[in-house]
Design a protein around this nucleic acid. Structure first.
Ligand SMILES: [Zn+2]
Ligand SMILES: [Zn+2]
Ligand SMILES: [Zn+2]
Ligand SMILES: [Zn+2]
Lengths: 140, 140
DNA sequence: GTCAATTTGACAATCATTCTCATCGCGGCT
DNA sequence: AGCCGCGATGAGAATGATTGTCAAATTGAC
């Protein structure tokens, strides 16, 4: 049996390493909760690693597509990004007050979602699951 | 034991009944899947019950706050509205192709969400759960 | 180094949603 | 039925996040 053909699924050409991309990734690594593109842009400017706003948006999109960062939408519809610890599929529990984020593993929901979807005759089931709450430190 | 005090939680003054509000509700009743404010506005114009776009937005917001309609965000961030059958808390399974929607009851997730949140020391746990898939009629 | 292909960034353009404010009409009262 | 106060309406302007444009700057392979 020969080796598998070269690269059946190269998908994207692998992005170039630029100062800007490195700065965005570094900033994300330094933060611990979800941030918007605008906030990241500001953060970078403060650090002195200034990057154009459009570039911040493009970089975050690329990182998201490459599954390097997670994305979620706040209640105002803005996209928030975060570099998570685990790269596998997971969910989040976010403090609606301070933004503190906990990565959640949900074998229970995973199974539930697949089961319910199948029961209705749907295929390629995908799901959106996010948890919001007030963390211990933010109690009144 | 006396009757409970008059109205401890009147909240909102109850909106006035206007031709516009009635038209929006009627249109929603006639539809079966989630629609955006813009789509509703167009639908109304087609029906001849033309209503100003701003009014459509305001009415949908009010209906949503009154829990008369359900809201969810599509992947582009637009708000979609739907008049659901059950008024109690529930979730949805939406066909990503044709929009066909099924109301889902999820005692399993409800419990899971509360449990996970508490385990992390969070309180007032709230959750976002939506399922997406391809319905039987939309298979290739 | 050289050079083609990418990437960047200042700025314009989109586009859903919200705001403004003069006008309209619902509904409680007589 | 007529009166009236105030919420509701709508045309258009304003907002604000995100995307598009395109010339100039960089990257990475040879
Ligand atoms: Zn907190
Ligand atoms: Zn999951
Ligand atoms: Zn379908
Ligand atoms: Zn639920």
């Amino acid at each position: 049996m020969n080796a598998a053909p070269p690269l059946p699924v190269p998908a994207q050409p692998a992005p170039r390493m630029t100062r800007q991309r490195a700065a965005v990734v570094e900033a994300l690594d330094g933060l611990d909760d979800f941030r918007s593109a605008q906030q990241l842009h500001e953060e970078l400017r403060t650090r002195g690693d200034s990057v154009g706003l459009a570039t911040v948006y493009r970089t975050l999109q690329a990182l998201a597509e490459a599954r390097e960062v997670d994305v979620l939408r706040n209640d105002e519809g803005e996209s928030l990004y975060r570099r998570c610890t685990r790269r596998e599929h997971h969910h989040h529990l976010v403090c609606r007050v301070c933004g503190r984020t906990v990565e959640i593993d949900g074998p229970t929901v995973e199974a539930w979602a697949a089961k319910v979807g199948a029961a209705q005759g749907f295929s390629d089931i995908d799901h959106t699951v996010e948890l919001w709450g007030t963390c211990a430190d933010c109690r009144a």
